[in-house]
């Protein structure tokens, strides 16, 4: 099962390596990981996309909670939540492809944020599957470069992760 784990962690040097080290030491998967300080600069929020059985997920959350720097851990996928990922994709945009690229970006509600004579950089936000679909919809030969942030997510409504 796919799970999105949200972690509030003390914003200290080495905090990221403690989490990443835990995953590698215990053989858990990390599909993607994002981290940045929160509105309270002493705290970072980390989002990890992982896969595993219920037993493995139970161990992952328990082990994360055991890290001294970790303040809170939540498995977002346990309840209603929204998730987003940001992708920047650089594509070749010449000749008839130039107009086609613009159209594709519009269809996927992407924005072109950099333009040269031969390339576009398209910014696209959405669920990971939407980003995947966009890549699949393009002619692979026209994709020059992609960069994705990994998933971040937040609980819906009154589900709040805060100290």
């Amino acid at each position: 099962m796919r799970h999105i784990i949200s972690i509030l962690i003390e914003n200290e040097a080495g905090a990221l390596s403690r989490v990443a080290g835990l995953f590698s030491a215990r053989g858990y998967n990390i599909e993607s990981l994002t981290v940045a300080p929160t509105e309270d600069p002493s705290l970072s929020r980390m989002t990890i996309l992982t896969w595993g059985s219920d037993e493995v997920l139970e161990q992952i959350t328990k082990q994360l909670n055991k890290l001294v720097d970790v303040v809170k851990v939540v498995d977002l996928s346990e309840a209603a939540h929204v998730e987003r990922e940001l992708m920047l994709i650089k594509v070749r945009a010449t000749g008839k492809d130039r107009e086609e690229m613009k159209r594709m970006a519009d269809i996927f509600r992407g924005r072109i944020i950099d333009v040269t004579e031969s390339t576009y950089v398209i910014e696209l936000t959405g669920a990971s599957s939407k980003l995947d679909s966009f890549i699949a919809a393009l002619d692979a030969g026209l994709i020059l470069e992609t960069v994705r942030t990994g998933v971040c997510g937040i609980g819906r409504g009154d589900r709040i992760l805060k100290v």
């Binding site: 040097a13 080495g14 390596s17 403690r18 080290g21 030491a25 001294v68 720097d69």
Partner: peptide
Amino acid sequence: TVGITRPCVKHNFL
């Protein structure tokens, strides 16, 4: 030191 000992300590500090 912090990196080398990290997996075998309860916690460490620099």
